[in-house]
Nucleic acid binder design. Structure first.
Length: 207
DNA sequence: TAGTAACA
DNA sequence: CAAT
């Protein structure tokens, strides 16, 4: 794969999926979202809503509500297990994660036009040896990644539809977020916006 | 601190 | 930053 280094531990794969593959993955996601509808996460304690809406696929899903951040096996509204992670996404994990066990969680983030995601760390997992793998669909997202503490320097990458990105190793706990969705950058989603998939290992593998 | 406001 |  033609990976582009972003910061140590973070590699960007522009154009990982061609248009036909993006459409196929999108079709699979639409089916998933019928079974596991988007929900609106809220911040712990303050109950301030995220602008991004979420769902999940895989054995575990990430949720946030007044009680806190956590992974759980059931959809918070339907009470049903999350649907399976699409094969095309699992293939990305196998290809670029360098990790010999499958992901347990695939968070589906829906960025409507104008929404964003503040800088944060992914630290709700038991296993920080596995990287985080991201897939972008739809309009370009201005992704920003920095170091392991809040004040540091950051770098921005424009993640376009079909791009994949991995961050692990010394970037596994890097602060990252999405500053803006750039309008008019993709026709994949009829009304614009962006879908991001992030796959993670949650628990340490048994053996 | 996965949120916003407000300030240069 | 305020509030858990």
């Amino acid at each position: 794969m033609n990976g582009v280094p972003v910061v140590p531990g973070c590699v960007w794969y522009p154009g990982y999926f061609d248009l036909a593959a993006q459409q196929d993955l999108l079709a699979a996601l639409r089916q998933i979202l019928r079974d596991a509808p988007l929900f609106q996460p809220v911040m712990p304690r303050t109950a301030k809503p995220f602008s991004v809406k979420m769902s999940n696929a895989g054995p575990l899903g990430w949720v946030s509500d007044v009680a806190g951040y956590r992974y759980q096996p059931l959809h918070p509204a339907t009470g049903k297990p999350w649907p399976a992670i699409p094969d095309a996404a699992l293939d990305v994990w196998t290809t670029i994660s360098g990790y010999p066990h499958p992901p347990e969680a695939c968070l589906i983030n829906w960025y409507a036009p104008g929404t964003r995601m503040g800088l944060h760390q992914d630290r709700d997992e038991q296993d920080f040896d596995a990287p985080v793998v991201s897939i972008s669909l739809g309009e370009t997202g201005l992704f920003r990644i920095g170091g392991t503490s809040r004040g540091g320097k950051t770098l921005s990458v424009k993640l376009a539809s079909g791009d994949a990105l991995v961050f692990g190793g010394e970037a596994r706990l890097a602060f990252h977020g999405v500053d803006r969705i750039i309008p008019g950058t993709s026709g994949l989603l009829k009304d614009g916006g962006r879908i991001n998939l992030t796959m993670r290992r949650v628990n340490r593998p048994a053996a």
